[in-house]
Design a protein around this nucleic acid. Structure first.
Lengths: 236, 236
DNA sequence: GATAGAAAGATAGTCGACAATCGTCAATAG
DNA sequence: CTATTGACGATTGTCGACTATCTTTCTATC
């Protein structure tokens, strides 16, 4: 069975495999924001045809990691405070909804699972293992979203988180002190477990809003722009 | 200039054109939920290659209008109360965020635009033109989302609305009485115009929540399932 | 010297043919 | 009669070659 189970996980479609490979290199920082992606080069390196690479790049484009200029080029998506702001605000709205639904509808088994994930976070944070704590942080939010039973929400959230991590690493926006993580997440976890939908939603939203504020504050003294909403509009 | 302006709108890429054509047929009800899509047939009908059709179908799959079973088939996405429930809850979260951002950051010109769109809705509703009123309804929400200046939000919202309309037509979920539309939307519009972010968000959310409730109530007496969240889970 | 236009090189877009996979149905064994 | 196996047909997955478009570079002209 050891070899059989792997088939479930292993991707059979070449374009998916190619997308996974490229995605990995992007989140690995091997390919930084703005890095140009040549179809022919990728095709040669991954030993597939250009059509397959095209399909993979389109997927990554839908995930927000890659951008295309028609007839011209593909490149890794840019990283900026504006992009990060968009991601965090969206994440806040999505996780608010998820927390509310999870509190209302999650099964006992799922609630047990959430307790365990929180315990992992607590352990990692108390041991001051930054990497592990950050992973556990994301895992906890992912768990709550999964508990919502909302398929589109789960899918969209996964994409947002992927982009958040990408932006964070390239924008120099570090996670908070590990110990600070615990209190925030304990309250949220308890609200979900207790079935207090309104409070769970509120906590999920303010949790993310606080991160947005921290992001903007950290960037306020930087030379770049001022207002968030990419308000470089035609307006007035 | 009459022929030149059309170039802006006219899609130059064949796969986009193909996607537009198929999308049109889906929202037109020419292709109902579950309708099978054969690459070869579409290629012949639209006079493009199968690869181009494949690309188009992948786009539509990302928009949620089409589903794929790997190595087997493409088909038009199913319509059900569960799908509609997902769409409405997501829409509520997205429009709540959009209303808040629009109230805070929109330019004076954009606010004027919103006033005009509301006037259109009011006129159509008072004249009891159902079709026009429904269109104006969607247009108003789209306008508010656009005012948020949040690119991802705008993009995602457009996709959700497309799916909402698709589900509505196939699930037999009619819009409310035209006159009822006015009051709801007046309050929301005024809150956005006034810059009252909290109230705008609240109204946008409850507005959609009311629709979710109406959807579930209308379906409660139907033979199909009961609970919303597709809670056909493994959990005990 | 600057600028407009044309040619050339590089790269993405499209196509038709071939390969891999799946579902069906008939043949056969129990 | 039922269940398993194998071959066949239909459909999707992948590939390499060709075409269209963009960008850059070179040249000619003012």
């Amino acid at each position: 069975m050891s070899t059989l189970t792997s088939l479930k996980t292993q991707e059979r479609l070449l374009d998916r495999q190619a997308a996974n490979s490229i995605r990995q290199q992007i989140v690995n920082r091997t390919m930084p924001p703005g890095h140009r992606l040549l179809e022919a080069v990728l095709a040669r390196e991954l030993e597939v045809s250009r059509g397959t690479i095209r399909s993979a790049l389109m997927q990554l484009s839908n995930e927000g990691l890659v951008r295309q200029v028609a007839f011209t080029k593909w490149e890794v998506a840019p990283a900026s405070v504006e992009e990060a702001w968009e991601l965090y605000t969206l994440r806040s709205a999505l996780e608010g909804l998820a927390a509310s639904l999870a509190a209302q509808y999650a099964s006992p088994a799922e609630r047990d699972g959430l307790s365990r994930v929180f315990a992992e976070l607590e352990a990692a944070a108390n041991a001051d293992q930054r990497e592990a704590a950050a992973d556990a942080d994301f895992k906890l939010h992912k768990t709550i979203v999964a508990m919502s039973g909302h398929k589109r929400l789960i899918r969209d959230h996964e994409r947002i988180i992927l982009q958040v991590r990408f932006q964070m690493t390239h924008i120099g926006f570090a996670p908070r002190e590990t110990r600070d993580l615990i209190d925030d997440h304990r309250d949220l976890t308890e609200a979900v477990l207790k079935g207090d939908a309104a409070r769970a939603e509120q906590l999920a939203r303010t949790h993310n809003s606080a991160e947005v504020k921290r992001l903007l504050d950290a960037n306020a003294r930087q030379p770049s722009s001022g207002t968030p909403g990419a308000n470089t509009k035609k307006g007035d």
